[in-house]
């Protein structure tokens, strides 16, 4: 995997895929997509980057340990469920607010937070699997 073409394309491809994955996550509520798919796309991006430049580079690039990302995701998803306590409704009840940001009405919800949690867990856990296997592949 050390071909010049691959190494030239990889950074572009990775950043495009990472962006696309977030786009898929955000539009998931109304169009095909969501946390699971978005997360898997992001993992593929990381895997491609790892193949081109080595796992160490990827680990540096994402800064956090993948399992820490997964843990943060699980925490976010749980908190998304717990917020409903303050509204005195059952666990995991979806809550929505529509703040106007820069004159644009943006729908924010615990559901979105939950989906982002799913995304992070998938990125972290599956990314960790892929990276640690790739790392061993070079032995």
């Amino acid at each position: 995997m050390k071909s010049v073409i691959f190494r030239t394309v990889a950074p572009v491809l990775t950043s495009l895929m990472a962006l696309f994955s977030i786009f898929v996550l955000l539009r998931g509520h109304n169009e095909p997509g969501g946390g699971f798919i978005g997360g898997l796309i992001a993992v593929s991006a990381l895997a491609i980057y790892g193949m081109a430049y080595g796992v160490e580079t990827v680990r540096r690039a994402i800064f956090f340990h993948p399992m820490a990302i997964a843990g943060a995701g699980l925490l976010a998803a749980t908190l998304a469920g717990l917020i409903s306590i303050f509204a005195r409704v059952p666990f995991m009840t979806g809550l929505w607010i529509y703040p106007a940001i820069l004159g644009l009405e943006v729908p924010l919800s615990t559901v979105l937070l939950f989906d982002a949690g799913v995304y992070l867990v998938v990125v972290g856990a599956i990314g960790s699997i892929a990276l640690s296997l790739e790392e061993r592949g070079g032995e």
């Binding site: 998931g28 509520h29 109304n30 169009e31 095909p32 997509g33 969501g34 946390g35 699971f36 399992m67 997964a70 843990g71 995701g73 699980l74 998803a77 749980t78 998304a80 469920g81 666990f91 995991m92 979806g94 929505w96 729908p107 919800s109 559901v111 939950f114 989906d115 949690g117 799913v118 867990v121 998938v122 972290g124 856990a125 599956i126």
Partner: peptide, 27 residues
């Protein structure tokens, strides 16, 4: 649930507690 994609709404809203368990398994 304010979502047009029924599949996604089921996963993250109607059956979100299930999904929470599932991502815990993945983790």
């Amino acid at each position: 649930a304010h979502g047009a994609n029924v599949v996604n709404v089921i996963i993250v809203d109607f059956r979100a507690t299930d999904t929470l368990g599932e991502i815990a398994v993945v983790m």
